[in-house]
Structures are given as structure tokens and as C-alpha cells.
Design a protein around this nucleic acid. Structure first.
Lengths: 222, 222
DNA sequence: TGTACATCAGTGAACGCGCGTTCACTGATGTAC
DNA sequence: TGTACATCAGTGAACGCGCGTTCACTGATGTAC
């Protein structure tokens, strides 16, 4: 769950219980990991500074030193989410043979991330809980946006000059909306009644495949 | 804001202040209206039983009689939202000339509702705050789903027997996802950087028009 | 190599706040007779 | 037409809870000399 290995032992003596060394050594990352575990276990509402501190086995005032307030912790966590999401999108993109395949692969990575991390995904898109000006969050969000933009431009022909900006913006919005809407509805359980009509071993990805295909074929003639 | 006119005067004497008649006469609807005003003013986090009661000028224990708990109030409010959303979608649909136009009109109504009622729209899609088994909510959600399904089937040819169920389910999911993703991202402020590149008086609806058009034209050749 | 000191991370008790909930109550309504 | 009574909606004080925050503190670290 952690992006980086701890630089120092998290708790050389008792684990989780108080009684370790006075200084944690890597408390910031440990708190982020704990917060993410809470998010996964109890959802967005279960994430509090006190709960994250308790989960880490540390005094409940300790997080203040690293994040300032709850919004700070949430923003750092969301930033980590966007970074990892972008990483998984990039990995999917790199494996694709064509620009069309790349768009599909990015979309599947986006949905897979949301399904694998529903609480975190929700947090990432609850602006009211985030400080959009936090540098880490700002750059992570814009990195992801750049990645999506790059994929859309590549599909449109890649030429840097000849591209119609309005068309590119529309393509980005359409691609993001489709995949984000699917992920959001799926995570919220809204697609359950529709999934019930989809056969196969993995109805969710089958349905997503159909949806992704829909942007290449005209809808059934009226 | 209220769906129905009050059956009895909300507060024949003092308005808002305590001092009116002992029985309110239409407290349930008044609480729903107050809750919606709170949602609009302060967002999902600002909605509490106490705040709704205070806004209505009533004892903070009074809501219990009508909704049981906060989840009950939220569910009734969400149900009202789905009912009105479906109503506006239906109105848009009825004005459309062709089945293709109808799909676009529904999509525009969906986004317009989200923009006009961002807090309520958010609440409607926060399942963790709702009791999906509340009859009012259950039926409102399924009404909206039926309406969308009807529009998709009509566009697919309308024939009741010959339709490919998998294709219909995929079309419903794709249409809903596209429009829901757009609405969600827009309400959360995520489209702001993209909107900055869209010219015109109303960039939001211009961008939506481009997005809706994208499902009829193939993307630019790669 | 050793000592003094500034800095910093984490502690733990205490605070105030708003929340949902409980409970005995009271005022109003409507129905039975 | 009038009286008794059951039912119900709303009151207001009180409760416990978990939250973020504050604050004086203490243990550890690292740097200057």
C-alpha cells in the first residue's frame, strides 16, 4: 500500500502498541498508510486524525506535525492516489500497440483503480475535503490530466500543430467523462441492476468492454 | 423547491421563530425544504438533523417523528431529487422530435439538474448516506432508470422483441456513464481547466454539446 | 573527543463543540359514546 | 351537543460520544564549539 519503503524501522520493539522508540522515524508515511487502510475499511467517513493516529499506534496529536489538519492529510492521500492512478494508466498505455488500444487500456486502468480502491477514489473526487492548492495534489492531478491529454492527442494524429484544440478538449472530456461516470456509478453500486443482465465470468469488465466499444461503433440505427 | 404546496399554513403566526401553533401542520415537507436549503448553502456536510430543525424553527428532536434518523431524512431528500430529475428528463424527452434528439435532451436535462442542485446531486449518489431500501427512494431510482431505458430502446428501434438485451444494457450504461461522469466532474470543479479553452457565452453547455456529439461521430482518424 | 544547546517529534491531559439520542412532558387533534 | 379519552406531534433539558485543537511537557537528534 505504501509507495516507498520506510527509511527507518516503523516500530522496532512492540508493534502497533506504544513502547517503541520515542521518534517514529517514518511517521508521515505510516500515517498515510494507516489512513488508507481506514479508508478501505470504513470509507471516507471513517477517516479522522484520531483514527489514523490510533491505527498507527501514536498519540492523537502527532499527525498535526506532519499534515497540519485533517484536510492536509486527506489532500496528501488524494495526491498519492492520483500519482498511483496515473502510474497505472501509464503502464497500461505503454503496453498498448495502437493509439486506439491505448485509450481503451487507459480507461480500463482507470476503472480498475477505482474498483481496487473505492474509498480512496471517492476521496480523490470530493473537492470539498481537499485543499486543491497543496503542491503535491496540484501536480499529481495535472500529471494525470497531461497523461490523458497525451493519449487523446496521439489518437488524433499526434501532430502538434494541426490539432483542433476544441476537438481535443472535447475528446478529452468525453473520454474522461465516460470512464469516470462508469467508475463512479460502479463503485456506488448503481450499475448492479444492469450488471445482473450481463453474462460471463466478470460482468464488470465485460460491461466496460461493451461501453468502450460503443465509442467506436455508431449506436444501433433508429 | 418543494414539490407540493403545503396542505396547511407553515407558520400562521410568527414566521421561522418559535411561537407558531404547537403543531406545524406540514412539518415533514418543511423539513425537507429546509434540508435542501442547507444542502444548497453548505453542501452535504452541512446537513444534520439539528440544522434542519433549526432552519425550520422547530425543536431539534422533532425530525425524529417524521424520518427516524438522519439517514431517513437524507433518503427522502434523495428520493425527491430522483423524482424531480426524472421529471425534468421526461419533460426534455417529450419535447424532442427524434429518438436521437431525445437522448441528447435527456443528457442535457441530467447535467442541468446537477448544476442547478449540486449538493442534492452529490447526496443522491452517496449510497453510504442513503437507505436504498426506503420505498420512496427505491421507486424513484427505478423510475429514472426506466425512463433512461425507454429512451435507449426507442433509439434502438423500439421493437420490443428484436432488441439485443446485451446491446441495450451496454447502450444504457454508456449513455448514463457519459452524462453522469460529465456532471460529476463538472460539479466537482474538475472540468475547469478544460472549460478555460472553450469559447462562447456558456462554455459548460458548449462543451457538453461537443461531448454529446462525440457519440455520433467517429473520433478523428488516428 | 566531549560538552552545551537549539531544534524538533511525539506525549497526554484538557478543552469546547456539535452531533444524534433519550425521556418525561405537554399541547392539540380527533374519535367514541 | 357535549364530555372523556386515546393518540399523536412537538418541547426542552440532559446525556454521552468522538471530533479537532491547544498546551505545557519530554525525549531524541544533531550541530557548534
Amino acid at each position: 500500500m505504501s509507495t516507498t519503503e520506510p527509511a527507518a524501522p516503523a516500530s522496532p520493539t512492540g508493534d502497533g502498541e506504544r513502547g517503541g522508540p520515542y521518534h517514529h522515524g517514518n511517521l508521515k508515511q505510516a500515517l498515510l498508510d494507516a489512513a488508507e487502510a481506514l479508508l478501505r475499511r470504513e470509507g471516507v467517513g471513517g477517516l479522522t486524525l484520531r483514527a489514523a493516529a490510533a491505527e498507527t499506534g501514536v498519540s492523537h496529536a502527532a499527525p498535526k506535525n506532519h499534515f497540519g489538519d485533517l484536510c492536509g492529510l486527506q489532500s496528501e492521500l488524494a495526491a498519492s492516489g492520483f500519482r498511483r492512478l496515473a502510474g497505472q494508466m501509464r503502464a497500461a498505455l505503454d503496453d498498448a500497440a495502437t493509439a486506439d488500444d491505448a485509450m481503451d487500456a487507459i480507461g480500463r486502468a482507470y476503472v480498475a483503480f477505482a474498483v481496487a480502491n473505492p474509498g480512496l477514489f471517492n476521496l480523490m473526487y470530493r473537492s470539498e475535503m481537499l485543499d486543491a492548492d497543496r503542491p503535491a495534489l496540484k501536480s499529481a492531478v495535472s500529471d494525470m490530466a497531461m497523461l490523458l491529454r497525451g493519449a487523446v492527442v496521439a489518437r488524433a494524429g499526434g501532430g502538434a500543430s494541426g490539432v483542433n484544440t476544441a476537438a481535443i478538449v472535447a475528446d478529452i472530456t468525453a473520454a474522461w467523462s465516460l470512464v469516470h461516470g462508469f467508475a463512479t456509478l460502479l463503485v456506488d453500486g448503481r450499475l448492479a441492476p444492469l450488471l445482473a443482465h450481463v453474462k460471463g465470468e466478470n460482468p464488470e469488465s465485460s460491461l466496460l468492454d461493451l461501453v468502450l466499444a460503443s465509442r467506436k461503433t455508431r449506436p444501433p440505427a433508429r
